[in-house]
Amino acid sequence: MIKIAPSILSADFANLERDIGRIASADYVHVDVMDGLFVPNITIGIPVVASIRKVTQMPLDVHLMIVEPVRYVEQFCDAGADLVTVHVESDTPEKIQEALDKIHAKGKRGGIVLKPGTPAEAALPYLEQVELILVMTVEPGFGGQKFMADQMEKVSTLRKWIDEKNPACELEVDGGVSPETCGTCIAAGANVLVAGSAVYKAEDIPARIAQLRG
C-alpha cells in the first residue's frame, strides 16, 4: 500500500494539534527540521517534536535538514521521533554512519536523504541497513516548489537496488507531490509520498490523502 506523510511545514503552527488531527487518515506525520545552515530556512526543533508526540499516536517521520546531524539524532529519538532521516550531504560518510548507528541504538528507524543533485550511488553504503531512503524532488529548504520529474530515474534505480538488497526498506519522495505527480512517483517505485500544501490546502483533507495513494 502507498503511504502518505503530510508535511506539517504547511500546517498552521498556531493550531498544530488541530492540524495534525486533520491528517489522521495518513500514515506518518512528516516533520521538516531546518537549521538555517544546511538549508536557508529555520523551522522547528526538538521541543516541538516532543510537543507533537504528546498529541498524536501517528508515527513521526523526522527529516533532518541540518549540518552534522550526529549531534542531535539521539535527542530527536528521545523527543518521540519514530523515524529519523539524515542527508548524506550533511557530513562525512563516517559521521552519517555514526548517526544511523545512534538512531538504531535508540530502537528507532533510520534513513538517508538524497538531494536532487546527489546520485543514487550515494545510498549504496547504507542501503542494506536503513529502513527508508528519501529522494528529494525539490531542493530542500522551502515548501511549495515545483516537482522535479527528472528525479524519477533515481527513484527507479533505488527501487531496483532496494528490491534486490533490502526489500523491507521504504522509498520516499518529497517535494511537489500532488494529485498530478503522485502517479509518476508511484510508477517509478516510491511507496511513501510526502505532501505539504497538496494536503493542507485541500478542501477535503481525507479525500486528498486517499487521492494521493493513487
Rank of each mutant, 00 (worst) to 15 (best):
S156Q: 14
L193C: 07
V48Q: 12
H30F: 12
S90Q: 07
C182N: 13
V155W: 06
D61N: 08
V130M: 08
D82K: 12
L158V: 11
S178A: 13
K154T: 14
S156I: 07
E89V: 12
L60V: 05
L124K: 15
T181D: 04
L100I: 15
L60G: 11
A26N: 09
N166C: 13
A210D: 14
E17W: 02
G21Q: 10
L158H: 09
P59L: 10
R71M: 03
P119Q: 11
D101H: 05
G143S: 15
G111V: 07
I162K: 13
K165A: 11
K201D: 05
A81V: 01
P119N: 12
V86I: 14
A5F: 02
A198M: 06
G189N: 09
I133G: 04
I44D: 01
F76C: 08
V86F: 02
F38A: 06
P125R: 07
A187W: 09
P179L: 09
G176L: 11
L114S: 08
E121C: 00
E180M: 14
H63W: 03
A190C: 09
A198Y: 00
G175F: 09
A14V: 07
Q211S: 07
E131K: 00
A11M: 00
E172A: 11
K154M: 12
V84M: 09
K106I: 00
G36I: 04
K108T: 08
D150S: 15
N41H: 11
M136Y: 06
G141F: 13
E164A: 15
P206A: 10
L132C: 15
S197I: 00
P140Q: 12
V31P: 02
E98S: 12
E94D: 01
V88Q: 07
Q97V: 02
G36P: 12
V70M: 10
E153D: 14
A120Y: 13
C182F: 02
Q57M: 06
V88Y: 09
